[in-house]
Design a protein around this nucleic acid. Structure first.
Lengths: 211, 211
DNA sequence: GTCTATATTGTGATAGAC
DNA sequence: GTCTATCACAATATAGAC
């Protein structure tokens, strides 16, 4: 195996770790399996990442951070609420559909190792200007108030609104094993379910807010 | 320590296991910690449950199965859709609020050990009459169609409807670490958030389905 | 940087006394 | 049924050669 002049090996290890951690969770993952998946030996994992915990941190940072720029793009924009809802639903379903196990991994990691989120949040706060981070919730609130004032929308707290929006997008993926059993959905049926959802969810949400 | 004539010890072990598995997940849980939590030694865990895996299975069965009777009660009833939605939202939030880590545990277990759900499903199918299990989805569909025909509701597939309903109830609990950071919610704020949600969610959902 | 070999501790599980 | 003691192996981590 040749040298890692351009960080190619480190990247391959991280990718392998992503696969294994997402599949088995941080506690269930084995360094040995990651090494095999990356085509290197276990010692090299420690050479690059020092410990399993640091590697797990790097993976969470990588996986969870991946979602952030698009979210910021949607909610940091000047679009109308209607547009934001539709953009978010489409973006989320289109992206996550290609890695449908990510949400389950993230939720599990949030639950068992919530301290990793703190670390990630600090980093994101450093990357994006504070103005964007601080402002986007009140801004959304103001946008809602506007619509309420002209009678185009019923009032809703912006945090409730956001939780609703994200919940409706994320949940089908984390509940997939249940859908498989309760609705008898095989892969194709699940895919059709997502198509239908992508099409109808924006209207469902916007209609919920009509006066 | 006295003998376990009435299954008191076994019950105490199961309860301890519930606590530890819910907190750390199946892979992250340690038999030693469960033994301490139960006030017994590790050997006794094996005496009653033979292996960690069987204990994990028993815990999942216990925790996940706990929710089922109430769900069946709501959706197996003859109530109107409006009533079902309100009943489910109130029931779910009231119950889960007292054990707010359950949803995170269940989602994680579904993700990493989906085969446990299969076992549980078989058991539930055995307990409840097949008529109830098979019928409840078409029945909900028929109930929706009725409303659509009289112009009281817009059309929606029953599986989409159910996913929406459950998603909106479950998600705040699994996303709690995120709410804490993004919205700065401490325990009291989260509790108020749930109060507000319990009050407004039924209307949100029903309004979404108005024509 | 990458490997092999190994140290060290953790962890599920069992044997056997009481 | 419950305990103590211990086995057997899994798993993270490090030392040191190349």
């Amino acid at each position: 195996m040749s040298n890692d002049r351009d960080g190619e090996t480190e990247e391959r290890i991280l990718k392998a770790a992503r696969t294994v951690f997402v599949r088995h969770g941080t506690a269930g993952a084995r360094m040995q399996e990651i090494a095999e998946e990356a085509g290197v030996n276990q010692a090299l994992l420690h050479y690059y990442f020092r410990s399993k915990d640091r590697l797990a941190q790097a993976v969470f940072r990588d996986v969870a951070g991946r979602m952030v720029p698009s979210i910021v793009a949607v909610f940091g924009s000047e679009s109308s609420i209607e547009q934001k809802v539709e953009q978010f639903v489409h973006l989320y379903i289109d992206v996550v559909r290609q890695s449908p196990f990510i949400p389950g991994y993230i939720v599990a990691e949030l639950h068992f190792n919530p301290e990793r989120l703190t670390a990630l949040a600090a980093e994101i706060a450093g990357t994006h200007p504070a103005s964007v981070m601080q402002a986007f919730l009140p801004r959304l609130g103001a946008q809602i108030d506007e619509q309420v004032k002209i009678g185009a929308m019923r009032s809703i707290a912006p945090d409730q609104f956001l939780v609703n929006l994200v919940a409706l997008c994320v949940f089908p993926f984390v509940a997939r094993p249940v859908l498989r059993i309760v609705f008898g959905q095989d892969d194709a049926a699940f895919s059709r379910f997502l198509d239908e959802r992508r099409r109808e969810l924006p209207d469902f949400i916007l209609n919920a807010l009509r006066p």
